[in-house]
Simulated scan of single mutants.
Amino acid sequence: MDDKIQAHLAKEKENPPIRIVSYQYQGQTVYYETAPCCDQFTTLYDEKGNVLCAPDGGITGRGDGKCRDFEKNRTAEKLVWQDPR
């Protein structure tokens, strides 16, 4: 996640600010990265930084459909990072 944070800091600040939140999901720690704005997919990563799915966002607001149960089954929310600028 450090590389992703540094990449965000190298760009202009988004509105709303990008956040990375960790959760427990399907027995593992995952990282949820918000999207900068309207109709864009959010991203869910595994512990190694591999993309698992887009849980929400997009035109329908329902993501890519690959982890439809994420919102219902996620636990242990913890803010990892939010763009401080």
Rank of each mutant, 00 (worst) to 15 (best):
I20L: 03
A10K: 14
T34A: 03
Q28L: 06
Q24V: 11
D39A: 13
F41W: 12
C37F: 13
L9A: 01
A7Y: 03
G49W: 00
T43G: 04
A10M: 09
A76N: 15
Q6P: 03
Y25W: 09
G27H: 05
M1G: 07
F41T: 04
E71S: 14
G57K: 01
K13M: 09
V30G: 06
D83T: 04
Y23R: 10
E12R: 10
D83P: 07
V80W: 01
Y31E: 02
T60P: 05
T43E: 10
V21L: 05
N73H: 12
D2E: 15
Y45T: 04
R62G: 06
Y32V: 00
K78D: 03
K78Y: 06
T34M: 07
T60H: 00
R85P: 05
D2W: 07
Q26A: 14
D3I: 03
C67Q: 05
A35T: 11
C38G: 11
N15K: 14
K11M: 15
N73P: 08
P16E: 00
R62F: 09
P84D: 08
M1P: 08
R62I: 03
H8N: 11
A10G: 15
K13E: 14
T75S: 15
E71L: 10
F70T: 09
I20V: 09
L79G: 02
G65Y: 01
Y25S: 09
K11E: 15
E71I: 10
D56L: 05
C67H: 02
E77W: 04
I18A: 01
Q24I: 10
Q26T: 10
D39H: 12
Q82L: 00
K48L: 05
Q24D: 14
F41C: 11
D2Q: 15
L79H: 04
H8D: 14
A10C: 03
I20E: 01
G49N: 09
K78I: 07
D56S: 15
Y32S: 05
Q82C: 01
K11R: 14
S22V: 06
L9P: 03
N50D: 13
G27M: 10
G57D: 03
G49H: 02
R74K: 08
A54T: 12
D64S: 05
E47Q: 12
D64E: 03
Y23T: 06
K11A: 14
C53Q: 09
Y31T: 04
N73K: 12
C38Q: 12
Q24H: 11
F70Y: 04
N15T: 15
R19T: 08
I5M: 00
T75L: 06
Q24W: 10
C53Y: 02
D46I: 07
C38W: 15
P55K: 00
R68T: 15
D56E: 13
D69S: 07
I59A: 13
M1L: 07
L79F: 06
L44F: 02
L52V: 11
T29K: 14
I5N: 03
A7F: 09
E77N: 05
T42S: 15
T34S: 15
V51E: 12
E47W: 04
E47N: 09
Y45P: 03
G58P: 07
A7S: 14
R19E: 13
T29L: 13
K11Y: 10
C38P: 03
Y32K: 02
Q24P: 00
V51H: 08
